[in-house]
Design a protein around this nucleic acid. Structure first.
Length: 277
DNA sequence: TACCAGGTAAAAA
DNA sequence: TTTTTACATGGT
């Protein structure tokens, strides 16, 4: 087994909860106490270990992918120091100590995942997404490699609607796959540039672009103010008994600058964990 | 059965 | 220009 050290603290169970909360995720599969993901055609099994995680098999090319997947890019210490000064956020953090939001490794996968989650419940989104993965992805061991952009560019919307995609969403997925936008190149652009490039694509709105910044690019200031879950979470802790509007949530984000991304994840996790009164 | 769930673009007004 | 509507599945 190859040990990958991660900065302390790191709570593997807490950080991977997302992959179990809404049913199995065939591309990031929780199986027998470990996270399975296909990296460069090989199934890698990741389990908790003292000081980090064990990953097997692990070659030099796979290690940075695993690190990214586990959220090693996000530095928790400055965020915790910031949160200690916050009367509402601060007390929520100790319960979630070691939570590192996992980072989605592939940009195309990130966008397709968000498209499946537009408007519908995450349970429904996972079900539809898994059917896409089973039809167009490649199974390696227990997990599947998420369908490649090149493969989806060759698909027709008619092939996606039987999987549960609306006609609209089927066209979004194929359209994004066939677009000439360099998705990997977005990593070099500013937050605003990324949002402008992505929202120019049909089917990608501000919500999807914000989660791309947060979950794929790990941008510290990403703050998906329009997200329903975010509105519920921010309202629960900062709404004074009222449901906040998207604009109110957006304004609230300024308070957490430059830790909006981590704050968003911690508030969502706190609400899911039942911390709201 | 009906309604809601981590939106978006196109149609109608 | 602003408001309204269609969309498809899964859980309750």
């Amino acid at each position: 087994m190859a040990l990958i050290r991660l900065p302390d603290p790191y709570d593997f169970e807490l950080s991977t909860a997302r992959y179990r909360a809404f049913g199995p995720d065939k591309a990031n599969l929780w199986h027998e106490g470990g996270l399975h993901r296909v990296i460069d055609g090989a199934e890698v099994r990741i389990v908790a270990a003292p000081g980090g995680v064990d990953a097997e098999p692990l070659d030099a090319a796979a290690e940075p992918v695993v690190r990214k997947l586990l959220g090693s890019e996000l530095d928790l210490d400055p965020f915790y120091a910031f949160a200690e000064q916050e009367p509402i956020l601060g007390p929520l953090v100790p319960e979630l100590r070691g939570l590192r939001p996992p980072i989605a490794v592939e940009p195309f996968e990130t966008l397709v995942t968000s498209i499946t989650a537009q408007q519908v419940s995450l349970f429904a989104a996972f079900a539809v997404r898994n059917r896409l993965i089973e039809k167009f992805g490649l199974r390696v061991g227990e997990a599947y490699a998420f369908p490649a952009r090149e493969r989806m560019a060759l698909a027709e919307p008619d092939e996606l609607t039987p999987l549960g995609f609306s006609r609209r969403k089927a066209e979004y997925v194929v359209g994004v796959a066939r677009s000439d936008l360099d998705l990997h190149g977005l990593a070099a652009r500013s937050d605003d540039e990324v949002k402008a490039e992505l929202t120019a694509l049909t089917g990608i709105g501000e919500w999807t672009a914000d989660w791309f910044l947060a979950r794929h690019l790990a941008r510290p200031r990403a703050w998906p103010a329009g997200d329903l879950g975010m509105r519920k979470a921010v309202s629960a802790f900062y709404g004074d008994g009222r449901n906040l509007t998207t604009e109110e949530v957006r304004t609230m984000g300024e308070r957490f600058d430059p830790f909006q991304n981590l704050t968003a994840h911690y508030l969502l996790a706190a609400l899911a964990g039942g911390a709201a009164t």
